[in-house]
Design a protein around this nucleic acid. Structure first.
Length: 222
DNA sequence: GACCAGGCACATC
DNA sequence: GATGTGCATGGT
């Protein structure tokens, strides 16, 4: 697909979703610390379970870098147990805290500021931070214009013939980056709208009925 | 009871 | 570079 066509399709899709669902206000005004913690805890996990874990951390007054650093891995694991894969995630949270302390003087701003792609590479170098988590942290905690690609995003774009089967993360992200203005509020909203439409209309073939994207060329079997 | 959810690291080919 | 596997909970 020619880049100009893909760009037009992406913008058309956004207009349809926004008209159908309105502003989603995803991951609004919370502390950057809580957003980073949530981004790691939500890896392959339903958001309701992440909220339980975050509630535990808040209850334990552990939602700050200093408090997290002072917890043992076992203590942290116990607090975040409801979010699943808790031993893995405890190690990842502590890896993030350690990197922040050792290489950025404990300043999240210094980690996330500066050239966007450079900041993204710094995040990706942290154990436990992959592409989606890095982009979520940059977008939601620092308001940087990087698009968060998830399984829903790929599925919808695939169904609408906008990407190839098996398209990798970076190529899908790049499609958004080059097709849309670099606007964090837009990227935030677009991603939230994709999740909303997928949850409502992509669970089964029959669920396609009433989908705001049904008028666009698509293949519901994908 | 299977399947999924706002993935990632690691091993293997 | 692509594919397979372990991690582990709570909801449907």
């Amino acid at each position: 697909m020619k880049p100009s066509i893909a760009a037009r399709n992406l913008r058309d899709m956004y207009r349809r979703l926004l008209r159908a669902y309105g502003l989603q206000d995803w991951w609004p005004a919370r502390t950057p610390t809580e957003i980073v913690v949530g981004a790691i805890l939500t890896q392959n996990t339903a958001w309701t379970n992440v909220q339980r874990a975050i509630a535990n951390l808040r209850q334990a007054r552990a939602l700050s870098w200093k408090a997290l650093r002072d917890l043992s891995e076992a203590e942290l694991a116990e607090l975040i147990r409801p979010s699943g894969t808790y031993r893995v995630k405890a190690a990842r949270l502590l890896a993030f805290v350690a990197t922040l302390g050792h290489e950025h003087g404990g300043s999240l701003e210094s980690l996330l500021d500066g050239d966007l792609e450079a900041a993204r590479r710094r995040l990706l170098a942290i154990h436990g931070v992959g592409r989606e988590t890095a982009d979520a942290i940059l977008l939601y905690a620092a308001n940087r214009p990087t698009f968060v690609v998830d399984a829903y995003t790929k599925r919808i774009l695939r169904r609408h013939h906008m990407i190839e089967a098996g398209a990798d993360y970076e190529s899908v992200r790049e499609l958004f980056q080059i097709s849309l203005p670099a606007d964090a509020a837009l990227f935030n909203e677009y991603h939230a709208l994709l999740v909303a439409v997928a949850k409502k209309h992509c669970r089964s073939r029959a669920a396609c009925d009433g989908c705001p994207l049904a008028a666009l060329p698509h293949d519901a079997s994908l």
